[in-house]
Design a protein around this nucleic acid. Structure first.
Lengths: 115, 115
DNA sequence: TTTCTAAAAAACCTTTCAGTTAAATAACCT
DNA sequence: AGGTTATTTAACTGAAAGGTTTTTTAGAAA
């Protein structure tokens, strides 16, 4: 159902195993077996996770003999980042307000932290 | 089973209806009915989406008479942004390579764009 | 050719998800 | 009290997610 690209990307990222795989791939190419090694999970399960990542364009796969080395493809992450950008001001604003509040506290009772 | 925060956030965001709700809330507080209005979807369905967003900490809800106004809470988005940060160099690197390629093209055939 | 290894596909199971309709809550307004 | 409005809860459905084991495919090596 989530036919739009951003939904596909985000739901691919919404799984800790898949994020761990991406983290591993950020260190360099790896085969399916190498990627599966840290997980207490069958190989086909990892293979499925890789297919999800591939469908989302987050990885690509080559062929070398009987291995299919995976590599990270960051373009969809950039798209997530762009989407996030339109909300950046909200968390920055929040921080500013907290900052202002803390300054206000200091003004009213500069020695509060000593108690 | 104890789902990590980032996974909860990302899977909440992986739905276009929920992202549309957040986009609406970025314009200001709104009641459930107001939020539901643009969608061809029953009200309980929207109510469920709101519960998902609330569980993810992406919205908070007040009480005003029979209305429950929702407002955007951006902190989890900041966390997504932080996570993304460690991958930023990958898409920027990619861009650099494209840039280098384009410069190479110009060097080899400086008049290509005139054709 | 046979055999080993890497990976994917198939078939299946269970849980979660996104939606529905119908009923319950809660606060306001006569 | 009784009725209207806003929202949630309950009960149900169908489809998708995430895992399993078993079977295929593909290439390397013997």
């Amino acid at each position: 159902m989530p036919e739009d690209r951003l939904s596909t990307t985000l739901s691919a990222l919404a799984d800790p195993t898949r994020r761990a795989i991406l983290a591993r791939l950020s260190l360099g190419e790896a085969s399916v077996g190498e990627l599966a090694e840290p997980f207490e999970m069958s190989l086909p399960a990892v293979s499925k996770h890789l297919k999800v990542l591939e469908r989302a364009g987050l990885i690509s796969r080559g062929r070398e003999a009987q291995w299919r080395p995976c590599r990270l493809e960051a373009a969809p992450l950039r798209d997530v980042n762009s989407w996030l950008d339109s909300y950046r001001r909200f968390w920055e604003e929040k921080f500013d307000r907290l900052d202002a509040y803390l300054q206000e506290l200091q003004k009213v009772d500069p020695d509060a932290e000593k108690n």
